[in-house]
Structure formats: C-alpha cells, structure tokens
Write a protein that binds this DNA or RNA. Structure first.
Lengths: 173, 173
DNA sequence: AGTTGCATGTAAGGAGTTACATGATTAA
DNA sequence: TTAATCATGTAACTCCTTACATGCAACT
C-alpha cells in the first residue's frame, strides 16, 4: 500500500488538490511510483474518509485542496519507520531478458541494445534535471536530490550492463 | 501483462505443471516478477482457454502438465519483439526516500543504512548462486546468467548509493 | 499413524489501468 | 468564439494479494 502514503508524503509538505498532486507525480515521483488520475482521486476520497487528510479550502473550477491531519502524519511516520519494509520490485524489461534465448541472436542483441539506449536517454534527461535545478538545500529538495542521484547511478549501471549483456549474447549464443 | 508471458516463456523451455512453474518462479524469476500461486493457476486456465498452452499429460496427485502451443510461441515472440516496450518499474523502498525529510536525521540515516544492508545481503545471496552453479552454457542458462549479473551489479550500486545518501543526509539535514 | 511434500484450486478484496464523461475559467 | 488548461470524477475491467480449503502420496 504505497500510493496513499505517497499522497500523505506530498501533503506533508504543503496542501494541494488532486490535480496538483498528479502534476507532482508526473514530475518526479512517477519514476519510482507511477499513478493514474482515477486512482489519485479515489485515494484522496478514502484518506479523507479515514481522517488522514481533510479539505482545507476550495478554489475556482471546483478545486478542492487537501491538507494532512495529525493522524495522517502519524500514519506516514509509521510507514516510514516500520521494520518489515517492502523491498520487492518489478521490471517487465528484465523479465523479458530471461526469455531472449527464444529469439535469434540478432533479435536478442537488438533488445539489449534498445535497453541500453533507453537507459542512456533516461540518464541524459536526469542530468538535464540536475543541471537546471537551483539547489537551495531545503530538506525536501535534498531527498529529491538523493533519488535523482539514484536515477543517475542506476541508469548508468543498467546501460553498462546491457552493453555487457549484448556482448555476452553475441559470444555465447 | 507480464505474468502470462512469463508462464509462456517458462513453458517454451519445457512442459510443466502449475506447481513446477511456481517453484521456478521462487528460484529466479521472482526477483524481477513475483507471483502468487492463485494467480499462476488462474493464468494457466486462461492461457489454456485461449489456446496458447494445452494439457500435455497428467500424473499422480491430480498433476496436470501444460505445454506451449504454436499460438503460444507466437504470442511470446510478439511480446519480446514488439517495439513499444514497457520499461516502467516500481519501488516502494525508493518512494520512501522522497519522504525521509519528515523524519529525524537519525531515523533517515537508519532507513538508508538498512537499505544498504538489505542490498548487501542480496548481493551475498546472488554471489552464492553464482559460485554454486554449474555453468554448462546452454542458451536458457545464459539468459539466467545475464539476469544474475544484473542483480549483482544492481545491488552493488544500490548499496553504494545508500551509503552515499546516508552521508549526504548526515551532512545536509 | 503421522508428518512432510506434492498438487490444485476458490473466495474476497484491494490495487492499478483504461476509457469515458463533464464542466469551469482563462487567454488568444 | 475557440482552444487550452484547470479540475474532478465514474465505470468497467484486469491484476495482484491474502486467506482459506481440499486431497493424494511418500516416507518414517
């Protein structure tokens, strides 16, 4: 159950509407946790029912702004500090690699080269984010910076691995 | 839609029962794509209805063995070669990092140190797999080996990043 | 006779995706 | 007045998880 906690985390920083939250997902959070609008609006309703967030104001175009409650902050804290934390991750792109032996060598190598290319594109995009940001050093931004660095290191590692894997496939298949 | 394709991929290698497939998920595939038994049995029924797999034999204890059909191989091939491939991944562990600023410095550092520890444990487990395996070099095993190497590199990168991130948090928060 | 491992599922519910649907406000 | 953007949702469906449920076979 991560989406509700992601919303609580964003609202812990400042009040926001569903629309605002969706934009903040797209620019940043979506890299590690994508979310659809129907799901965000649905979760906001549930969180509100549970008293973890509350409507703090309304605006033009039936805008409804939510803020986190004390109960919400406690829930967020629990999620961040509980010991049995979920480290599972899923990647369809890696799953495919298990089955590359069913293709020809050329097709397999193509797949891995594409894998490398996608990761280099992502790396370039993240470098642009890093270079264009103004680093003021508030705690929120620092955590974003940590994730950004993870992205930089991770896409580099992935791209290099895919190059290596393409060579191994060429050699051994 | 990855689970049905994962099953097709495993059956492309050799016929197997739901039980067999579950064991093969646990030892290997589950790292990139976890699956529950209820889901596997359910998917097998669906794939069979669609004609992508078929019952190839029965055994003791109502064992039912499935094999992939030609239509199934075509479907698998399509999934592996289609251009608009899904590179999204989800990680609750990284999502949490976005919100470490809501904790104290000590708690944040604890989280990252635990992150590093988990990755070093995983690394050790993968090294054991690598060192205990007999490498005969058939195509199926080579693809497994590529994934294993991804795991080794990825957990190393993740552990080193977490060390680095813990230092940054200590310095800047 | 009892335990372990093999083998298959159902039921219920929550998480996530895709498509559809509506309406208000602002700027060109 | 038209288009873009802001803003909120519902409906239908699939995917995934957890808990429950059953029974056979082999070994001790």
């Amino acid at each position: 159950m991560s989406l509700p906690h992601a919303l609580l985390g964003l609202l812990a920083e400042q009040p926001a509407s569903g629309y605002d939250l969706l934009k903040r997902f797209e620019s940043g959070l979506a890299v590690v946790w994508p979310a659809q609008k129907s799901q965000v609006y649905g979760e906001l309703a549930k969180l509100s029912e549970k008293g973890l967030i509350e409507v703090t104001g309304t605006g033009a175009r039936q805008r409804r702004e939510y803020g986190i409650t004390e109960a919400g902050r406690a829930e967020l804290r629990g999620w961040l500090t509980e010991p049995g934390t979920d480290f599972a991750f899923r990647s369809a792109a890696l799953l495919r690699v298990f089955f590359l032996w069913t293709l020809s060598r050329e097709e397999g190598v193509d797949y891995l080269e594409n894998f490398a290319r996608i990761n280099r594109e992502r790396l370039a995009a993240l470098e642009a984010v890093r270079d264009n940001a103004e680093w003021v050093g508030d705690p929120v931004q620092i955590c974003g910076w940590l994730i950004l660095e993870y992205g930089l290191r991770g896409s580099t590692t992935s791209a290099e691995w895919a190059d290596w894997a393409a060579e191994r496939l060429t050699e051994h298949l």
